[in-house]
Amino acid sequence: MSRLVRGVVARGKGAPVSVETIVVPDPGPGEARVKVQACGVCHTDLHYREGGINDEFPFLLGHEAAGVVESVGEGVSGLAPGDYVVLAWRAPCGECRSCLRGRPWYCFDSRNAVQPMTLEDGTPLSPALGIGAFAEMTLVAAGQCVKIDPAARPEAAGLIGCGVMAGFGAAANTGNVQRGDSVAVIGCGGVGNAAIAAAHLAGARKVIAVDIDDRKLEWAKGFGATDTVNAGSTDPVEAIKALTEGNGADLVVEAVGRPETYEQAFYARDLAGTVVLVGVPTPDLKIELPLIEVFGRGGSLKSSWYGDCLPTRDFPMLIDLYLRGRLPLDKFVSETIKLDEVEAAFTKMHHGEVLRSVVVL
C-alpha cells in the first residue's frame, strides 16, 4: 500500500521550502521504494528551488542519499528488501545509442520511477534529479539503487550520489588526471574538494585550490591541495602560472559555473591542457572567448556530466577508498540536520559556512 511520509517541498520559485506529507506509492514494475537514512544538501537542490533547472513545481527536493531498500516491484532482479544502497541520478538504460556504443556513463535515456509521488491532494511532485530524497521514503527506478558496503556511514556514503562523484569524476574520469600532472581547481565547495581529492589520489605533483574564501581554502588542504590561491586578492591566472613554472596547469577543473571563473580556467591551463566544467551554470549565463585562442591553445574544453561516472562501477570503488581511509568522506560532512532545517542549510551553503549539511532521518 502507499506510504505517507514527510518530505521537503519547493512550491514556487524562490519561496522557502516546507515539510509536507508525501504519498509514496507501492513500487511498480522495475521500481524500488527506499527508506532514506541520510541525504546531503547539494547546491543543485537550491538551483531547483530558485527555478534554475526548470519550472516544473512543486519539487520534492534532495538527491544525495543513502538508505535501505524497503520493497521492490515486479521484474526487479539483483536488488532485494534490506539492501543498503546509494541512489544515483543516472541509471543507464542499456538500449540508447550511447549505451550500445559501450558508453553507458553518457546514457541518453536514464531510468527513473514511472509512477509519481504526490502531495496528499494528489498533486504530482517533480523529484529532484529523479530521486526526491529529502523524505523519509522515496520511489526510484531499481537501476538507481547501487548496493554498497553496509560498513559505510550513511551520512558520508550518500554524498557520493552526486557532489562527491561529480567532482571526483571530473578530475579522474573527464579530466583523466595522471601521475605528475599539475591540477588547479577553481571553487572549493563539496564538488571542488572532491576533485582535489581525486587529483591527490591520482598522484598529481601539484594540486592548486582556488577560491575567494580563506576558510574553504583551508578545508581544501585537508583533501590534498598542495597550494592555495585567494582569487579575491590575487589574479588567479597569474598565480596558477607562477606555481607551474609559468606554464599553467595541465588540468583545470571549474567547479563554480560562472563565465568569469570559466574564463580564468581557460587562460590558467598550459598549452594542450584541459579545462573541465563541472560547476552548474544557470540557463542565462554566456561566455565569450577569442576563437583564435581556443584554436591556438589546443587541448580540450570539456563538460563533465555527473563526473562521467558509471554508478555501479564507481560508487563501490569510492566507498572502498573511504573504508580504507584513502578518501576522507567524513570531512565533507559539516553538520547533520533534520528535515525542517533544510531552508536554514541553504542559507549556510549560500554563505559558504558549510561543505555539506546532511539530513539524517
Results as ranks from 00 to 15, higher is better:
Ser2Gly: 09
Arg3Cys: 13
Val9Asn: 11
Ala10Val: 04
Gly12Tyr: 04
Lys13Gln: 14
Ala15Glu: 15
Pro16Tyr: 01
Ser18Val: 13
Ile22Lys: 08
Val23Trp: 03
Pro27Cys: 09
Pro29Cys: 07
Glu31Leu: 10
Ala32Gly: 02
Gly40Asp: 06
Cys42Ala: 09
Leu46Glu: 11
His47Phe: 04
Arg49Phe: 01
Asp55Phe: 05
Glu70Tyr: 02
Gly73Gln: 07
Val76Trp: 03
Leu79Asn: 07
Leu79Phe: 08
Tyr84Gln: 07
Tyr84Ile: 10
Arg90Trp: 05
Ala91Arg: 07
Ala91Tyr: 02
Glu95Met: 13
Glu95Gln: 14
Cys96Ala: 07
Arg97Thr: 14
Cys99Asp: 10
Arg101Lys: 14
Arg103His: 13
Pro104Ile: 05
Trp105Leu: 04
Trp105Ala: 12
Phe108Ile: 15
Arg111Asn: 01
Pro116Asn: 02
Glu120Gln: 14
Ala128Asn: 03
Leu129Val: 10
Phe134Lys: 03
Gly143Asn: 07
Gly143Ser: 11
Val146His: 05
Val146Ser: 03
Asp149Asn: 14
Ala157Met: 09
Gly161Phe: 01
Val164Gly: 09
Phe168Pro: 04
Gly169Val: 02
Gly180Lys: 11
Ser182Met: 08
Val183Ser: 08
Ile186Trp: 00
Gly187Asp: 01
Cys188Ser: 11
Ala197Asp: 14
Ala202Glu: 09
Ala202Ile: 05
Ala202Asn: 04
Arg205Phe: 03
Lys206Trp: 01
Ala209Phe: 00
Val210Arg: 00
Asp211Arg: 00
Asp211Pro: 07
Asp213Ser: 14
Asp214Ser: 12
Asp214Pro: 13
Asp214Thr: 09
Arg215Tyr: 10
Lys216Pro: 08
Gly222Pro: 10
Phe223Gly: 06
Phe223Leu: 12
Thr226Arg: 08
Asn230His: 02
Asn230Leu: 04
Ala231Val: 01
Gly232Trp: 01
Glu238Trp: 00
Ala242Ser: 15
Leu243Gln: 04
Asp250Gln: 13
Asp250Ala: 14
Glu260Gln: 13
Ala265Cys: 11
Phe266Ile: 03
Gly273Ala: 08
Gly273Ser: 11
Thr274Ser: 14
Val278Trp: 00
Gly279Leu: 07
Pro281His: 11
Thr282Tyr: 12
Pro283Trp: 03
Leu291Ile: 12
Phe295Asn: 12
Ser300Ala: 15
Lys302Glu: 12
Arg313Cys: 06
Phe315Met: 12
Met317His: 15
Asp320Pro: 02
Leu327Trp: 06
Phe332Trp: 10
Val333Glu: 09
Lys338Gln: 15
Thr347Glu: 15
Glu353Thr: 06
Leu355Cys: 11
